[in-house]
């Protein structure tokens, strides 16, 4: 079994000859040349490889490509509409939410997934058992704890995410 049908950023791919050892991250970067998703630790600890699979954020480095038969993947390359940036991309620029930029694609994909989790009412270690999750800075930091930034741009990353969350309040 080495065939894989997978949609990446809305484009269907019909792949053959996928080595079972290939992770989703390596498939994206090495085979499809979508190098926006980054390989940091390659152990699921840094979050630089974060992508959205069927709308949920995961670590692409710990996920074998062949397990994604039929899945729809969104990477950093799939977020902008032409020249119009995704609100989180624009907010990261506005708030200077990076220095070297290596962790940024993972930060942004993770933030999209995290904001969706909050919209769906998912609780967190910080929010506890309350019905309503308030997206304050502590909640953002907890939700983003799977994404490391070695430059230490956390203050501005939190500001960018907070800004977008307030632009698009819970519906």
């Amino acid at each position: 079994m080495d065939a894989l049908h997978i949609a990446i950023n809305g484009v269907a791919h019909d792949l053959k000859g996928v080595d079972a050892r290939t992770t989703l991250l390596d498939l994206l970067r090495d085979r499809l040349h979508l190098t926006g998703s980054k390989k940091g630790c390659d152990h699921g600890q840094c979050g630089a490889c974060t992508v959205l699979v069927n709308g949920r954020r995961i670590n692409a480095c710990l996920s074998l490509a062949l397990t994604h038969e039929g899945d729809a993947i969104i990477t950093i390359e799939g977020l902008a509409q032409g020249d119009t940036l995704h609100p989180l991309q624009a907010a990261f620029i506005e708030h200077d939410g990076f220095q070297c930029g290596y962790c940024t694609p993972g930060q942004i994909c993770s933030a999209i997934g995290m904001l969706d989790e909050v919209r769906r009412g998912q609780p967190s270690h910080v929010s506890g058992d309350g019905e309503h999750v308030e997206l304050d800075d502590a909640e953002i930091r907890e939700g983003m704890s799977g994404n490391l930034c070695r430059c230490g741009a956390y203050v501005n990353i939190v500001a960018a995410i907070r800004d977008v969350a307030r632009q698009a309040p819970e519906s």
């Binding site: 670590n59 609780p123 994404n147």
Partner: peptide, 19 residues
């Protein structure tokens, strides 16, 4: 079983808990 929800949420990261 709030203890179970709390235990799960105290572990790993958002990405890993999704997997």
């Amino acid at each position: 079983y709030p203890v179970l929800s709390q235990a799960l949420l105290s572990g790993a990261s958002g990405q890993l808990r999704n997997m």
